[in-house]
C-alpha cells in the first residue's frame, strides 16, 4: 500500500536535514530547524503516525525553536559597559568605535549590548562581578579641555579610548580584527573568587 509519492516526500527529510547541518548562522539555522520540523511532521503523518506528527509540530517546531531563540539571544551577546555621561556627549569617534565593534562582532554572529553606569567605580565593579564582558572608557591623560585645545594648538587632538576585555577569546578576536587606532585594548583576568562576595 506504499504509494510512489511517499518515497518522494520521505526524500525531502534528509534534504532539509542537510540544509540545517550546513547552516552556520544560528538564527537562520533555527528557522531551518522549524522547516525541518514541518517537513518531518508531514512525513510522520503520511506514514500513519498521527500522534508522532502532532508531537513533532508542537514540541519540535514550536517549543524547541522558541526556547532556542531565547537561549541564543541571551547567550550570543557581548555586553559593553560605558559611563553615562559618555553617551550623552555623542562624539563621532565613539559612534565610530561602536560601529566598528559591531562589524567585527557580527562576523561571529554576536550582538552588542551597551550597558550604562553612572560612575567609573560602578563600571569597574561590574567588570569584576562579570556583569559585563568589556568596558570602554576615555583614557585619562588625553582628557584635555576643549578651550585649552583650541587656544594652544588649533588642531583637535583625537581622543583615545581604553577598552578592557575580560574574556580571552573576545580579546583575541578584537586584537586581530579590530582596526581602529583610537582605542587601546587590554585584557584582564577576573578570578572566580571575586564574584562570590
Amino acid at each position: 500500500m506504499i504509494d510512489n509519492y511517499v518515497y518522494v516526500i520521505v526524500a525531502l527529510l534528509p534534504l532539509a536535514a542537510l540544509m540545517l547541518v550546513f547552516q552556520v548562522n544560528p538564527y537562520n539555522a533555527l528557522v531551518i530547524r522549524a522547516i525541518l520540523g514541518a517537513v518531518s511532521a508531514l512525513v510522520y503523518a503520511i506514514l500513519g503516525a498521527a500522534d508522532v506528527a502532532l508531537t513533532e509540530a508542537l514540541v519540535g517546531t514550536m517549543l524547541a525553536v522558541t526556547l532556542y531563540v531565547v537561549a541564543v539571544r541571551s547567550s550570543l551577546v557581548m555586553r559593553l559597559g560605558i559611563l553615562k555621561e559618555f553617551k550623552i556627549e555623542k562624539e563621532s569617534y565613539f559612534e565610530e568605535l561602536i560601529a566598528n565593534l559591531r562589524k567585527v562582532i557580527n562576523k561571529y554572529h554576536l550582538r552588542l549590548e551597551i550597558v550604562e553606569y553612572s560612575n567609573s567605580k560602578a563600571l569597574e565593579q561590574a567588570l569584576m562581578a562579570k556583569e559585563v564582558h568589556a568596558t570602554c572608557i576615555k583614557q585619562e591623560q588625553e582628557q584635555v579641555d576643549t578651550q585649552n585645545q583650541n587656544s594652544t594648538t588649533g588642531i583637535d587632538i583625537r581622543q583615545t579610548y581604553h577598552t578592557t576585555i575580560r574574556v580571552r577569546r573576545l580579546f583575541e578576536i578584537m586584537k586581530t580584527e579590530l582596526t581602529f587606532p583610537e582605542t587601546t585594548l587590554d585584557y584582564v583576568t577576573v578570578s572566580n573568587e571575586e564574584d562570590k562576595h
Binding site: 533555527l30 528557522v31 522549524a34 514541518a38 511532521a41 503523518a45 506528527a53 502532532l54 509540530a57 508542537l58 517546531t61 514550536m62 525553536v65 522558541t66 531563540v69
Partner: peptide, 12 residues
C-alpha cells in the same frame, strides 16, 4: 498543525 504552525510562526 495548520493552526499551531501559524501561531508558532508569529511567536518566532
Amino acid at each position: 498543525i495548520l493552526s499551531v504552525g501559524e501561531a508558532g510562526l508569529m511567536l518566532l
